[in-house]
Nucleic acid binder design. Structure first.
Lengths: 111, 111
DNA sequence: AGAATACTGAAGTATTTACTTGACAATCAA
DNA sequence: TTGATTGTCAAGTAAATACTTCAGTATTCT
């Protein structure tokens, strides 16, 4: 029941690549084999498999091999971790931005 | 009033670096000069300046030079763009995950 | 069995990245 | 003016990244 902790560095890195985000978008439509994913991408099967490894390490996709075909699907854990990071930081950022606003206001009043 | 559109690729890339996230965290406390930022990071001033350029292009920080000191502070635009990306995708992902659940349930019933 | 399919693994390459060094420019302080 | 502070610019480097090719290995089809 205990999932490995998700590395936020790895997660952002995974999402920082256009091709990997395209893969995620396609997987939102339906689970798919590696070659089905590769078909419209214009890169080799090997390259796609490499991207999938990175996406899997970030808990953004889950893959499972049955017979000779590996089926890939979206996994929510990575996405959830990202949302948690965002919400953790939003509060801090908002606080600090508010404080900055106050400081600027004070500075404006100051003389 | 028209801000340049934020490149999500660039944004994720900016956030995918540990040092850059550390810079952001420090800037949440208060606006700071480049050398103040560099001090605890153990890297050269030049390196920090380079990170700041990347953060600025992603609309995550704003910098302004007055006299010889460049003051850096958090800018909300990049963060807001990230939140928008997340919320846009959350709905799609959730829909697809729900649909996946249905498909699995159907499959389970099927025979 | 033989051929096609679906991937896997190892190794190589071009580009990008995260840094560095060192020389310089501008500003402020004594 | 002299000297220290604060940052910038141009180049260079080592490692990481996003690919590639080529040679396998299972697995399914006929």
């Amino acid at each position: 029941m205990k999932a490995p902790p998700i590395d936020i560095d790895r997660l952002f890195h995974a999402l920082g690549d256009h091709t990997r985000r395209a893969i995620l978008d396609r997987l939102c439509e339906r689970p798919m084999s590696v070659s089905a994913l590769a078909a419209p991408l214009g890169i080799t099967l090997t390259a796609v498999a490499q991207h999938l490894q990175i996406l899997e390490m970030s808990a953004l996709v889950h893959t499972e091999k049955l017979g000779r075909v590996r089926t890939c699907r979206i996994e929510p854990a990575g996405f959830t971790a990202l949302e948690r990071w965002i919400s953790d930081h939003r509060t801090v950022w908002q606080q600090r931005l508010d404080r900055l606003g106050e400081l600027l206001a004070e500075g404006g009043d100051q003389h």
